[in-house]
């Protein structure tokens, strides 16, 4: 069993390639998480304009991407766009797909956060002469982010896990490299290595979240 799933020789042989995969996963996360946050912030700020002509299309946009599996979006960009003469490559496709998909999730979270700040806060800020944008920037957003911090972290965890989809479009991230190593060595050890690495990196975040979420639900009683 150990020889099959934790083969020491294969661990040594696959180490460099798996590590380069890990490095790319980290790099990918560092790009797609801020991108998603940016997309979400744009959506939430647009949503704070409470005009029906803005609100309804926005809600449809968000619900569309909540209904759409991210992998389908990714494949659509990767395999569909070339027919229109656009070859973007795996990395760019992942970036765009994540901007659209995770941006919608982040957007919902930011919107809930902004809604959670009492209207009196804006009124107080405006009464001291702050502009609408200033009130948003200095008074509402800081409170909003604090109120939904657990949800933001939880979504970020999901985004990092989602970077494994890059393997489907040949982005050389952790899972992709592990599968390459597996097909060369005819041994599952590299995939087990990838799983262990994901677990070791993400476990502390899961622990933290579990604490925060328990507290949040208890507070809603």
């Amino acid at each position: 069993m150990i020889q099959t799933f934790f083969n020491p020789e294969i661990i040594v042989a696959a180490w460099p390639i798996v590590m380069s995969g890990l490095w790319n996963t980290i790099l990918l996360s560092l790009i797609v998480v801020p991108l998603g946050l940016l997309g979400g912030l744009i959506l939430a700020l647009l949503a704070s304009i409470r005009h029906p002509l803005v609100r309804w299309p926005l809600m449809a946009w968000v619900d569309f991407f909540r209904a759409f599996p991210p992998l389908v979006l990714l494949v659509l960009l990767f395999a569909g766009l070339p027919f229109a003469g656009l070859e973007l490559g795996g990395f760019a496709c992942v970036a765009i797909a994540f901007f659209l998909n995770t941006g919608s999730y982040y957007g919902e979270i930011f919107r809930a956060g902004i809604d959670s700040v009492p209207a009196g806060q804006v009124e107080a800020a405006r009464s001291t002469g702050l502009s609408r944008m200033q009130a948003m920037r200095y008074v509402v957003l800081p409170q909003a982010v604090r109120n939904v911090l657990p949800d933001l972290l939880s979504n970020t965890l999901e985004v990092v896990k989602l970077t494994s989809l890059g393997s489907v479009v040949a982005v050389p991230e952790l899972l992709y490299e592990a599968r390459q190593a597996q097909s060369v060595t005819y041994n599952p050890t590299p995939i087990v290595m990838a799983a262990v690495i994901y677990f070791l990196i993400l476990w502390p975040l899961v622990r933290l979240l579990s604490r925060l979420e328990n507290r949040a639900l208890a507070g809603r009683r």
């Binding site: 965890l157 994901y198 993400l202 899961v206």
Partner: peptide
């Protein structure tokens, strides 16, 4: 914790 940490695809 294990199944929350691992990406489903993995």
């Amino acid at each position: 914790d294990l199944f929350r940490s691992l990406p489903p695809l993995v």
